[in-house]
């Protein structure tokens, strides 16, 4: 009788310890995912700042050549100010503001096509490469971030990690979207 109680207690302890260790593993995994998402977001932030810093240079260089395009400059500058203002907001707010900036920049670059002298300017070429690269970086940082967000959100929703996530108040992360003008117009590839 005593023996059977002991065995039962031992089993109980084993199960409790096992569940506890399992929970710890899930918790650590969740923390890892959350940190990846945080890190991904700061990566996007870095690249967005990069873009904001690039625009004054770009506008300065282009102004000399494009005197009749004041509206375009104003639109870009305003969009930049708006995007910088949204810097501390949620991914959705930042995304909206940055979409505005992307739009303005795309229109600006379209206008540049009419100024061959500007397009030949060495300084402008360098800035244009920087801009291209920055746009790519934003796109790729967003890609990596959204992948991580999906992983975290799946973990938070799926059993059994959803129990741990509920206990320790892990919140689902928000996806980051910039409506890319070129992306929207991307032609359908057919084979």
């Amino acid at each position: 009788m005593v023996w059977s109680i002991l065995v039962f207690l031992a089993l109980l302890v084993a199960v409790v310890v096992g569940v506890f260790l399992f929970g710890v593993a899930i918790y650590n995994g969740l923390v890892g995912f959350r940190n990846r998402v945080k890190n991904g977001w700061s990566q996007i932030d870095v690249q967005l700042k990069r873009r904001h810093d690039l625009i004054p240079n770009l506008v300065e260089t282009a102004k000399g050549y494009m005197q009749h395009e004041r509206e375009t400059f104003i639109r870009v500058t305003e969009a930049r100010a708006k995007a910088m203002g949204a810097g501390a907001g949620s991914p959705r707010e930042v995304g909206q503001a940055e979409t505005g900036l992307s739009d303005a920049l795309a229109k600006f670059l379209l206008t540049v096509e009419n100024y061959p002298e500007l397009k030949a300017n060495e300084n402008f070429l360098r800035l244009q490469e920087e801009l291209t690269s920055t746009e790519n970086r934003i796109a790729y940082a967003r890609q990596a971030y959204n992948d991580d967000v999906l992983l975290l959100n799946n973990k938070i929703e799926m059993f059994p990690s959803n129990i741990v996530a509920g206990m320790f108040q892990f919140h689902k992360a928000e996806f980051f979207q910039i409506e890319d003008v070129t992306e929207r117009k991307a032609p359908q590839v057919k084979f």
Partner: peptide, 14 residues
């Protein structure tokens, strides 16, 4: 440009 491209891919790969 080469350096930029490598950096872009580094970001894309996280």
């Amino acid at each position: 440009q080469l350096y930029n491209i490598v950096e872009e891919m580094q970001i894309a790969a996280g």
